[in-house]
Nucleic acid binder design. Structure first.
Lengths: 338, 338
DNA sequence: ATTCGTTGATGAAACGTTTCATCAACACGC
DNA sequence: GCGTGTTGATGAAACGTTTCATCAACGAAT
């Protein structure tokens, strides 16, 4: 492997000059600069980032530890974040914690060892003390799509309780009085907050609390939604809710699919509201009503905050909250008989 | 930031001993070991990977440069690769080239600078000489989901021509004689190979070559599929094909959605075959017939090959080809009149 | 002719690890 | 009491950069 030393020898200059060509090309004369550059391509020199980083102490890499890379919601947020990183000449690595806390932890440790310039993370637990320790140790952290209770770490999120309320109020407006919430596990903050928002709206509307059915799922996935569909189908028509609000679109799509398969008509027998408004929501069997979140903007803002914290010494921690909006489609269209 | 030197001082041992605790705990006595470990947690010591890597020369990081992180196909492959990496105690970083060659190149350069242990990549151009240069310089590379024409780089892929043939033969079996291929740009190898496979099968079946309509799209995305749907809808019923084979499921979903919106019945007016069999394919308006690829296995094998090349000195380059299979669903169900 | 400033090149130190040859201490068998 | 291992700790060198103080050369100004 060829080093600056080799380049220096080949170009007949000192090692320091090679470094200057690399880092302050203006401080070196035209003629030697091209001579050195020539030697570099000649020898196939590739800067050793480890050495560079070790000495210089800074790195132009940030990472995004994401809860589930297969969820299109996160891919879109990540794309926004990448855009934000690229604008400031940073490079973004994605890490998939796959909803496993121990995996998340493993990634955070590795990233810390790599001394990345900063970490975006959608944590399993927004109040994980490990995150604060990272910030305290000087590694900028921005919590994405979760809201830690402490203000001493940056965060960007979308108001999940509001989203839950929007969904519930939409269903109430349509005359539904028996509503199921499909989601889980509730250890996932987003899921729980959406549930809280929805329940609050339903109770505020005077709905009897035990008419709100909570269908817990093992995971917020298509499979989880299918499973919930089976359970709903198993209920007598009298006991079955007339509407379901799903904690995300994957669940809603799974639920929808199972409903179609089992002969439950959507929206006539069961209205469905999803969450996230992923691209597939509008392409579903019955186009899904969903709660849309500003995904790219979320990622962009997160990257902006992170790089500010990394580069600006008088950075102040900040919690940014975006507002979701309801997108009504066929899956909650008012049925003829209602 | 606390270093081994600080730990050594705190524990009252030499710096070399601290390193031994880190790397060869068996060579150090029980009592000093726990004393050093205690000092480490006390001071919050975090190994500096840059320094470690610089000296030791090896790293336990691999990367996967992916063509489009928002495409569920790639997320699944990535999950397989991550699994394969984790098994051997490596960590996987994901990079999204977003179908942009210059972005891909940028990532490859950065990864090379970081001296990662290896790179998985789904390249824009499978024969990019840059990839071979990487391998030649000693950075293991495995090309994923593409087949380079040279054998001196590892590759894992699924037989795209076979997949195209399976799709075409399925449609032929159902009696279709006028078939459109929806996909593009053809500069993307997978798209083109699927097209070649399909065309070959159609021609072999005696179909007139100009009855095979090629609908090029700007991108293999849902939007591209929608656009193709508009163009198909614009044709008179007589000139319109009775079946469409889409280069991937995103296109198929977009096409399907537009068909439903514009009153073209699926499968009666237009049968649709997708490709990839992503999870959403079976949850679509009309469950999609698709070509399934062993996604996780693809990723797993790619990681296995990569780590073998990284660790085994007598590694031999290898091209692994997986076989796709057709999954028939409602979108190509034989219509009553056929 | 001397001083001065400018431009461009230099060499050594430093970053935080790992590695390796060396060494001290101690027990063992004769 | 003397070699001989064995175990565990040590200190220095090395990895490939960046940085910084220093220096040489040279023309301009006095």
């Amino acid at each position: 492997m060829v080093s600056v030393k080799d380049v220096a020898r080949a170009a007949g200059v000192s090692l320091g000059t090679v470094s200057n060509v690399l880092n302050r090309p203006d401080r070196v004369s035209e003629t030697t600069r091209i001579r050195v550059e020539h030697a570099m391509v000649q020898l196939g020199f590739v800067r050793n980032e480890a050495a560079r980083h070790l000495r210089a102490g800074r790195s132009k890499t940030i990472a995004f530890v994401v809860l589930d890379a297969t969820n299109p919601f996160f891919s879109d947020v990540a794309q926004g974040a990448e855009e934000g990183a690229a604008r400031r000449d940073y490079v973004l690595f994605l890490c998939n914690s796959d909803n496993r806390e121990e995996r998340e932890h493993q990634y955070l440790v590795r990233l810390q060892e790599q001394r990345v310039a900063g970490i975006l993370v959608t944590p399993f637990d927004a109040d994980d003390p490990f995150l604060q320790r990272l910030t305290a140790r000087g590694i900028p952290v921005v919590v994405v799509d979760r809201t830690p209770s402490t203000p001493d770490v940056c965060a960007v999120a979308v108001d999940n309780q509001l989203g839950g309320r929007l969904a519930a109020e939409h269903l109430l407006d349509l005359g539904h009085e028996s509503i199921a919430f499909v989601g889980g596990p509730h250890s996932i903050g987003q899921v729980h907050e959406r549930w809280l928002g929805a329940r609050a709206a339903l109770v505020a509307a005077g709905l009897d609390e035990d008419r709100v059915m909570r269908l817990d799922t093992e995971a917020p996935s298509v499979a989880g939604g299918r499973h919930a569909g089976e359970r709903l189908a198993g209920l007598s028509a009298a006991r079955r809710p007339t509407a379901a609000f799903c904690a995300n679109d994957l669940l809603a799509l799974g639920l929808l699919q199972q409903c179609v398969a089992l002969g439950i008509r959507v929206p006539d027998d069961l209205a469905i509201v999803g969450y996230d408004d992923i691209e597939f929501a509008s392409a579903a069997a019955v186009p899904l009503t969903s709660i849309r979140q500003p995904r790219r903007e979320l990622g962009l803002t997160a990257a902006r905050l992170l790089l500010d914290e990394a580069e600006n010494p008088q950075h102040r921690h900040e919690h940014v909250m975006f507002t979701p909006e309801l997108v009504a489609r066929a899956s909650t269209r008012r049925s003829a008989g209602a």
